[in-house]
């Protein structure tokens, strides 16, 4: 799973969001590290919808336009959970190794 897809699914976990709402939430969640462009967002969103991980929740009128809200599906939650577990296991592995290894410069456990 790509980083943008990971953050988009995470952004949709607590509530359905519209396009720009997802962009803003992802920027917030990633502390500004992931700044989605609209083209990138809809490239990923199209794939997530196609794979059944995200679906349309509702359409609402806003300033004369229709806003589409998207929500994460059960399959999307399961996929995200599996990815989060995988990343967490990787992070634990790295942390454990870091604690095991002595710092070659200071000679202390880092």
């Amino acid at each position: 799973m790509t980083e943008p897809a990971f953050f988009i699914l995470t952004a949709l976990l607590d509530a359905p969001r519209h396009g720009y709402g997802i962009v803003a939430e992802v920027a917030d969640l990633s502390h500004g590290q992931v700044q989605l462009k609209i083209g990138s967002l809809y490239g990923v969103l199209d794939r997530l919808v196609g794979d059944g991980l995200v679906e349309l929740d509702r359409e609402e009128a806003w300033q004369g336009r229709l806003r589409r809200y998207y929500r994460v599906t059960e399959q999307g939650r399961a996929t995200l959970a599996a990815e989060a577990d995988r990343l967490a296991a990787n992070a634990r592995l790295a942390s454990a190794r870091l604690h095991e290894q002595r710092n070659p410069i200071t000679g202390t456990s880092s």
Partner: peptide, 13 residues
Amino acid sequence: EWEDDMVAAFLES
């Protein structure tokens, strides 16, 4: 499928 939604998101941005 996506144009109107993309336009809305872009204008909002």
